[in-house]
Design a protein around this nucleic acid. Structure first.
Length: 153
DNA sequence: GCCAACGTTGGC
DNA sequence: GCCAACGTTGGC
């Protein structure tokens, strides 16, 4: 199943992902988003890499799931902003997967384009007030986005 | 279990 | 900077 993952490019961009080769998707502290990584993502699943709080916001490229889920190490790190005192090694609360870079679009596909496209306008990310940082994406939406971005994988 | 208060996300 | 949406927390 394809996915969409959000990231603020000033914090971590698709270019950063290309540079590091592989990135643990740490810091997700929302149960719905966690459950997608923990229970639903499969190795080799593709994910649209979305730049949020950007000018303009939009889809910047494609990433890929490259690990099974495992506990997010930042939840145990007292110095981390993602430290969770209620989490224990025996019973971790937060899980993540690693992503790697697949493709960077020649041009960012703006949110505005998604909202005005007949096929893409009912994507979760196109809807007003969706804050979820990880969402499932329908195959037809995924295909359409790659086409509009002239991206061949 | 309800719900008010609060905090966060993220587009604009 | 504003604010809509909505998840989380905690008192009761």
């Amino acid at each position: 199943m394809p996915w969409l993952i959000k990231s603020e490019p000033e914090v971590f961009s698709i270019q950063d992902l290309k540079k590091v080769k592989r990135e643990p998707w740490s810091g997700v502290r929302n149960y719905q988003a966690r459950n997608f990584m923990w229970h639903d993502m499969q190795v080799d699943d593709l994910a649209l890499f979305y730049h949020s709080s950007a000018k303009p916001p939009g889809v910047a490229g494609v990433a890929k799931v490259v690990s099974a889920p495992y506990p997010d190490p930042t939840q145990f790190d007292v110095k981390s902003e993602y430290f969770d005192p209620k989490s224990t090694a025996q019973k971790p609360r937060w899980f993540l997967v690693d992503f790697s870079h697949v493709a960077t679009f020649a041009e960012l596909l703006p949110l505005e384009t998604l909202k005005s496209d007949d096929v893409l306008k009912d994507m979760i990310v196109s809807r007003k007030g969706t804050r979820l940082s990880i969402t499932p994406v329908e195959k037809k939406h995924f295909t359409r986005i790659l086409k509009l971005a002239r991206c061949k994988i």
